[in-house]
Design a protein around this nucleic acid. Structure first.
Lengths: 230, 230
DNA sequence: CTTTTTTGGATTGTCGACAAAACGTGGCGG
DNA sequence: CCGCCACGTTTTGTCGACAATCCAAAAAAG
């Protein structure tokens, strides 16, 4: 083994950095359109530019980041159509996932889901919105993992992260993921009632989408004038 | 198994090279487990190692190649579980896609589908298996595009490419995608009969999967001895 | 003869330097 | 006052060299 333990230049793995950036996105720390300058990321993670550039390609593939050649990397800024497509895709993927989960769920898995909802409620109670958002997404991903299809789980991971950006962009002032919806889902999963679980999930996602104001934004520099005209 | 296609002077875009490699995979030119050495790819596409390494990261994200650190990139070699997950995911995605397509299809889109089936039949007739496979996959992707959800289409593109690898690995001696299935799908789409289209797609995919022999392969170096013991 | 170790070659991973492009700033002219 | 252009700075993209690792074949040991 080497003796050079003096400086702990911890080489962080690609996946770890990707997860941290995705987490920052999901916690609304990185808003849509934010520029991800390479040097800034290098310093933030004490990583080399080579590694950061590779990570940006990965994030681009996952749809969390948009890469503009010679311009740089920017946090995904969803158009109205893209936003609706993501929600539609989530309904497809998650309805199937929750139905499969209902068919194979056990006590241990149910306990994990209940723990996530409880932690989410606790976070919401102490006004820790970021943690609440994170746990809410985790609840959905956990259901996919219970369903036991790694491909669908992977799809959903990307969709959940992108949904956070949609919410950040077409922002809901009100709460997005109601705990009661999650409670009802758990009840249907515990029964287990496959059809009902599917219906609840579909409605849950429709309710979230309906709580947003997804309309194409037009570039209008005149807004500033309007703002001061009142 | 060479990828070379003449001397390409012009700098080819990343996406173009990715597409060509994916096409080679779908045409069973690149079998599962094949090593994608960087130098070989550099020469094949007369690209720099920087570009090739970036492309390999992209292919890794799409699930078409597996990256082993310090070992290299290899064409995806699906385990039995992964193969079943991909098919299950396809049933979920494509059932939804074909139902949406049935709800919004028009004459022009129908013509495109019919043209694809006709071209596929022609390719099969002249024993051009590669073109037949390619067109068969294109038929499925075209349905997703008609459905009009870019997210689901993107998912399906990856799934179709990976399905080709599954077929190459758990190989079907018989035909995989029967034209009559596709004809029936077109009939249901032309009606349009949403429910029937969904059922047909689900059964079509189940039939393809059933035509394979997806069982976990065990590593047994003793095979060699058994082979010579007879 | 089989198994283990060594060793040379080949391949992958990383880093720094340089080239190319974009951005912001300031000056100039209308 | 506004728009336009030139210039320097900053940032992104690319390339080549070097280090680290792996692999396969040869050599040594049991």
């Amino acid at each position: 083994m080497t003796l050079s333990e003096g400086v702990v230049r911890r080489a962080t793995s690609d996946e770890a950095i990707v997860e941290r950036i995705v987490a920052a996105v999901m916690e609304h720390k990185l808003p849509p359109g934010a520029k991800l300058a390479e040097n800034a990321l290098c310093e933030a993670f004490s990583a080399s530019r080579t590694q950061i550039r590779r990570i940006l390609v990965v994030l681009g593939e996952r749809g969390v980041v948009t890469l503009h050649p010679n311009r740089g990397a920017f946090v995904w800024s969803p158009s109205a159509e893209e936003a609706r497509d993501v929600f539609a895709a989530r309904r497809v993927v998650e309805r199937a996932a929750v139905e499969r989960a209902a068919a194979t769920i056990n006590a241990r898995a149910l306990a994990r889901l209940r723990a996530l909802v409880a932690a989410g409620a606790a976070a919401a109670h102490r006004a820790d919105e970021r943690e609440a958002i994170r746990l809410s997404g985790q609840f959905h991903i956990e259901i996919a993992e219970i369903a036991g299809n790694a491909v669908l789980t992977r799809f959903l991971e990307d969709l959940v992260a992108r949904t956070s950006l949609i919410i950040a962009f077409y922002g809901a002032t009100t709460q997005t993921c109601s705990d009661s919806d999650h409670d009802d889902l758990i009840t249907a999963l515990a029964a287990p009632n496959v059809a009902r679980a599917g219906e609840l999930m579909e409605n849950h996602l429709k309710r979230i989408e309906a709580g947003l104001d997804i309309r194409e934004m037009v570039e209008r520099p005149l807004d500033i004038r309007e703002l001061f005209s009142g």
